[in-house]
Amino acid sequence: MNKFIRRNLPGYTFLFPWLIGFFALALGPILASLYLSFTRYDILTPPQWAGLENYEYMFTWDDRFWQSMKVTFTFVFLSVPAKLIFALGIAMALDKGIRGIGLYRAVYYLPSILGASIAVAILWRQVFEANGVINSILAIFGIAGPHWMGNPDYSLYTIVTLAVWQFGAPMLIFLAGLRAIPNDLYEAAEIDAASKTRKFFAITLPLLGPVIFFNLVLQTIDAFKIFTNAFVISGGNGAPADSLLFFTIYLYEEAFKYFRMGYASALAWVLLIVIALFTAIAFFSSRYWVYYENERD
């Protein structure tokens, strides 16, 4: 016990400010929402106990719930791997020691700082509009681009692209991870006749395991929670044809458009459980694919 405390004290010390915030500010509303998810509640009149009604309706009757699940999962499965691969690629290019690396790092990180800002989403909207930048460029080559965001077949991909474009945060973490791999190992591999691909798969990737894992978990959680970009680009309601009806947008509509707070709370809890499940799977599977340098035996 004593040993446990000694080993983990620094960790908890750093967590302390967050823990204060969590217990003082967040925990109450979280528990309240759990309670509300079992009620009918329109804000104006007191909540009425409804048992499992909200959950039952969600899973058995609510087509828009399933649509929002489909949109969100598609987004997560497309955007997270694409973003991580992109981030790793850029990080490896930057790691090669290009002149003016600091500038590049800042430039590449910029989209991520602007992150979930409304301005970026609006900018993106304009880029992909019917007469936006992309289509103007395509027009030069005589191609009539589609109405990217008005067409349910393409709309989701514009948001995936936007997510991938905001690769800065995982890229910086990858860059730090790459820097931590001793150069000696690559030199030993060089003498050991390893090709570039072999070095990547046999050394870089495994030694980057913990960093990949960290980025994967963080980005997956973030992707499940996507809101601002989707809200602005979809015009706030998941249009066109519900093709951008992300889970959070649906939740927002239920809560603040229709004031079905009880149902919205239930949706929020389902999202929490989905995220928790994915995180748990990642953690349990990690022992099979993540190598930790200082793991205790």
Binding site: P182, D184, L185, E187, A188, I191, A202, L207, Y291
Partner: peptide, 12 residues
Amino acid sequence: SMVFQSYALYPH
């Protein structure tokens, strides 16, 4: 073949 000061063994 080369033997490095840091050993440079592949840790994983």
